[in-house]
Simulated scan of single mutants.
Amino acid sequence: MKIKTIKKLKLYGFNNLTKTLSFNIYDICYARTEEDRKGYIEYIDEQYNAERLTNILTNVANIIGANVLNIAKQDYDPQGASVTILVSEGEIHPKDAEHFDDNESPGPLPESVVGHLDKSHITVHTYPESDPDKGISTFRADIDVSTCGKISPLKALNYLIHSFDSDIITIDYRVRGFTRDITGKKYFIDHKINSIQNYIASETKELYHMIDVNIYQENIFHTKMILKQFELDNYLFGVSKKELIPKERKRIKQRLKHEMTEIFYGRNIPKV
Rank of each mutant, 00 (worst) to 15 (best):
K2L: 04
I6G: 01
K8R: 13
N16P: 02
T18Q: 14
S22H: 11
F23A: 04
D27H: 14
R32S: 15
E34M: 09
K38S: 12
Y40C: 02
E42P: 08
I44Q: 08
D45H: 06
N49G: 09
T54H: 03
N55R: 12
V68L: 05
D77V: 15
Q79R: 15
A81H: 02
A81Q: 01
S82N: 05
V83Y: 02
P94A: 13
P94K: 13
K95L: 15
A97Y: 08
E98M: 12
F100T: 12
D101K: 05
D101A: 09
G107I: 00
G107N: 01
P110G: 08
V114Q: 14
H125E: 08
P128N: 06
E129Y: 08
F139L: 03
A141C: 05
I143K: 10
S166F: 00
Y173D: 00
F178V: 07
R180I: 12
T183N: 12
I189A: 06
K192V: 07
I193H: 03
N194F: 06
I196C: 03
I211L: 13
I220R: 03
F221P: 00
M225I: 09
L227C: 07
K228Y: 10
F230C: 05
L232V: 13
V239W: 05
E243F: 02
I245N: 14
I245H: 10
P246G: 12
P246I: 08
K247S: 15
E248A: 14
R249H: 03
R249I: 07
K253W: 07
Q254L: 12
R255E: 13
M260Y: 04
